[in-house]
Design a protein around this nucleic acid. Structure first.
Lengths: 191, 191
DNA sequence: TTGATATATGGACTGCCGTCCACTAATTGC
DNA sequence: GCAATTAGTGGACGGCAGTCCATATATCAA
């Protein structure tokens, strides 16, 4: 259904898009998400403000894409060894996620806030960011269930919601999201 | 330390404050939190914009106070019977909280978002709203622990974080926060 | 070459925010 | 009554958001 290649018209300038994403990440790390205006990003990238709007509807959409590519570049997710004990898999996974939050937690908090204020961005954020991570945990727990490592009466889906809820709650309330929490969560789920 | 009564000067017009809170709640229910500007609230209340700023630093501070008084008016919290089984206490408490979210969940989501964007409001929101509710659950679970109703190896504090995290996560991701979730959570905590 | 199509730019415009100011109004202390 | 103090009003200001537009630019199709 979708046209992969446009047949005509001036092609988008790829450099402009890359410059915008790079400028957004740089400025936000320097001045915080809310301290950076769309105008400032466009100016820093050396393009017109309208060019940014041509690509993304909001600052949040731009930043989501930039963060997404950034994490992919650093190969953020070493897939957990499916043979290891499920508790270890979960702890390793959470440790990795929490380490990322230590670097970009403020940006993620800002994106969660943006998702509450803009329904269309919220949809994109959940689809591209939230659900995949929730499913990774659900999958670890489902394998654990099959191998009898997860105590009876615990639904992988509900446990995954609990786990994500716990660190969202900590993140959004300014509490530490660290290795100790990863250990506590893991102990609690498999106890 | 704080002076309770001012000795001199024109006294604040109590009606203006009440009119602002009432107008804020009414407009937000009609048009959504982000659809209502500070100017619109002041206009609807029939006062100058500066009068609103004299009382509250941000729209979020005004709405937090209005919601707070509103829930107090409707006597939102029938204290759970401390003699009942802890599982029942928890389920009743969660059912009550979730019913409130059905009415004002959108406003609460907006306040959580505002707390991420304004550190000073975040502090007030957590102190006045989040912590008291977290402590209520912690207390129910602590009593359950003393009476041997809470399985060993489960910290009331961590369980309370899990519980609140679970419904925050649902609320912030547009998933249902209903009686079924209250039942699931209760079963899971006491299973 | 010419026309159709799509992007890039700079500028304009409205609305709101947060702040500030001059002025008026209400209250207390002397 | 009068001065000091605080609250309320209306208006101004600069900054940013989001939208729109005229114009220039780049590419494809005929």
């Amino acid at each position: 259904m979708t046209e992969k290649t446009r047949r005509t018209g001036r092609p988008p300038n790829a450099e402009a898009g890359e410059a915008l994403k790079a400028a957004a990440l740089r400025l936000i790390r320097e001045q915080g998400y809310d301290g950076v205006s769309i105008s400032a990003i466009a100016t820093a990238a050396g393009v017109a403000r309208q060019t940014l709007y041509n690509r993304w509807a909001t600052k949040a959409d731009l930043v989501l894409e930039a963060v997404f590519e950034e994490t992919a570049r650093y190969a953020d997710r070493p897939a957990p060894d499916p043979q290891a004990p499920a508790a270890d898999q979960l702890r390793v996974f959470l440790t990795g996620v929490f380490a990322h939050l230590g670097r970009d937690g403020d940006t993620l908090r800002a994106l969660i806030a943006a998702a509450q204020q803009d329904a269309s961005f919220g949809e994109a954020f959940r689809t591209r960011f939230v659900q995949p991570r929730e499913e990774m945990v659900t999958e670890i727990l489902s394998r654990a269930r099959e191998r009898g490592e997860l105590p009876e009466g615990r639904s992988p889906r509900l446990m995954s919601e609990f786990i994500h809820g716990a660190f969202w709650y900590r993140l959004l309330n300014g509490q530490p999201v660290d290795d100790a929490l990863a250990q506590e969560i893991t102990d609690s789920v498999f106890a």
